[in-house]
Simulated assay, not measured.
Amino acid sequence: MSDSVTSANRLLSILKNGIFFLAAVLGLLVSIFFAVSFGAKDITLHTVWSAVADYNPNITGQQIIHELRLPRVLGAAVTGAAFAAAGALMQGVTRNPLADSGVLGVNAGAMFVVALSFAFFPHLSYALLMVLSFFGALASTALIFFISAAGKGSMTPLKVTLAGAVVGALLHSLSTGVAIYYDLSQDLAFWYAGGVSGIKWAHLQVLVPVITVFIILATFMGRSVTLLSMGNDVAANLGVNTALTRAAGLMIAVVLAGVSVSAAGAIGFVGLVIPHIARKIVGVTYRLIIPMSALLGAIPLILADLASRTVSPPRELAIGIMVALVGVPFFLYIARKEGREL
């Protein structure tokens, strides 16, 4: 009897999660549709469909859809998915609910390298800039964990968060100094504020495969990350190599964050907020949290981009500002909640 009840509960759980994932996919598709269809210039839905199904570069409306809106919307989707998946992975392997590539200073490391690249190597290809952004994010991550592990006591989530804030502030100041000294403020304004208007089809040819592969890798790590999130002792007793899992998880998260920063700038809080929402929907299993975070993370960036170019046309607002309006209060709420628990 108990076995049949257990099987029924498992089947019900699978069905429920399947419905949640289907709803997330539909929400993503609807967001893409609205973001491509609407903007500063009014374009008919027939023109939008023609630009996707039968593109004619000689028609201005189709050209706007195909060359401007579609790549930036898809760019917002993949970078939002990457930031959210990176945040979920970081929260799992560090057991830190405040973990996020922006909060922990990982984005700042990638941004610093972008600033140096603009100053000393202005003609770098996008693929090489992506690689350098990854190494910048990796270096800042290593510095953050070195600082948080130094001194007395163990490496607690609070120490990691504080170290990330300090390193992030330092690297942001250095990036600003480089931009001012080399007169790059205008060029780097896009990356500082965050935005996807500069993403073209050539960028997507690199972005989409890299981000897709590493989100899949992160999902495959889901079981080990779930056990690790329960504590080192629990994970080790169940056969998980905790050091290897933590290192691999952080490496994948750094790749996702570094690649996204090279395309869309240092957009924060997506990786902080979205994994908490995903956890409420699908539970504590990271095999489900990571892909759900990726799906949900794409939606707010798409909508933020749509709002940025429709609120005050023809001027555009920064995506990072709109995301921060939601992200900052959520961060303060989580920080206060964790502070009470500590």
Rank of each mutant, 00 (worst) to 15 (best):
191 W>V: 10
295 L>D: 09
157 P>N: 09
289 I>G: 01
198 G>C: 03
220 F>M: 13
102 G>T: 13
291 P>Q: 09
94 T>W: 10
181 Y>M: 02
278 A>W: 02
88 A>V: 04
140 S>C: 12
202 A>S: 15
66 H>W: 12
291 P>V: 04
301 L>W: 00
123 H>M: 08
111 M>T: 14
306 L>S: 04
70 L>I: 09
197 S>H: 13
211 I>G: 02
76 A>C: 00
315 R>Q: 15
82 A>L: 11
323 V>D: 10
148 S>N: 08
270 V>H: 04
86 A>G: 13
225 V>L: 15
23 A>D: 12
25 V>Q: 03
302 I>W: 00
271 G>D: 13
96 N>K: 12
310 T>D: 06
1 M>I: 08
257 A>Q: 12
236 A>H: 13
32 I>T: 09
19 I>F: 15
260 S>R: 10
127 A>D: 12
7 S>R: 15
327 G>V: 10
82 A>K: 10
9 N>I: 06
35 A>W: 07
319 I>M: 13
98 L>M: 14
17 N>E: 11
312 S>E: 03
13 S>P: 01
267 I>W: 03
40 A>V: 10
188 L>D: 09
63 Q>A: 10
34 F>R: 05
226 T>H: 02
324 A>G: 12
6 T>G: 10
119 A>T: 11
200 K>S: 11
220 F>L: 15
15 L>Y: 06
58 N>C: 04
231 G>T: 08
265 G>C: 07
249 G>I: 01
283 G>Y: 02
13 S>K: 13
227 L>I: 06
159 K>S: 06
145 F>W: 13
10 R>P: 05
59 I>Q: 13
228 L>T: 03
301 L>Q: 07
92 G>D: 03
87 G>W: 09
208 V>K: 00
49 W>S: 13
31 S>P: 01
274 I>C: 05
213 V>S: 05
233 D>F: 03
119 A>W: 11
316 E>W: 06
243 A>E: 15
288 L>Q: 14
150 A>F: 08
235 A>Y: 04
276 H>V: 08
198 G>I: 02
8 A>M: 12
109 G>V: 09
341 E>V: 00
120 F>D: 02
119 A>F: 09
67 E>M: 02
265 G>A: 03
29 L>H: 03
178 V>S: 00
4 S>Y: 11
133 S>T: 11
275 P>Y: 05
204 L>R: 01
287 R>Y: 07
312 S>T: 14
253 A>T: 03
96 N>C: 05
207 L>H: 00
335 A>G: 07
310 T>L: 02
205 Q>R: 14
164 G>E: 13
274 I>M: 06
162 L>K: 09
214 F>C: 03
210 V>M: 12
221 M>Y: 12
44 T>E: 12
48 V>Y: 04
315 R>F: 14
32 I>D: 12
212 T>S: 15
100 D>E: 15
92 G>C: 05
268 G>V: 13
303 L>D: 00
86 A>R: 07
74 L>H: 09
176 T>P: 01
312 S>C: 07
78 V>I: 15
264 A>D: 04
51 A>V: 00
252 I>M: 06
55 Y>I: 12
300 P>W: 01
300 P>G: 02
140 S>G: 08
73 V>M: 03
174 L>F: 13
132 L>V: 09
62 Q>A: 10
1 M>H: 06
103 V>H: 07
266 A>V: 10
152 K>Y: 03
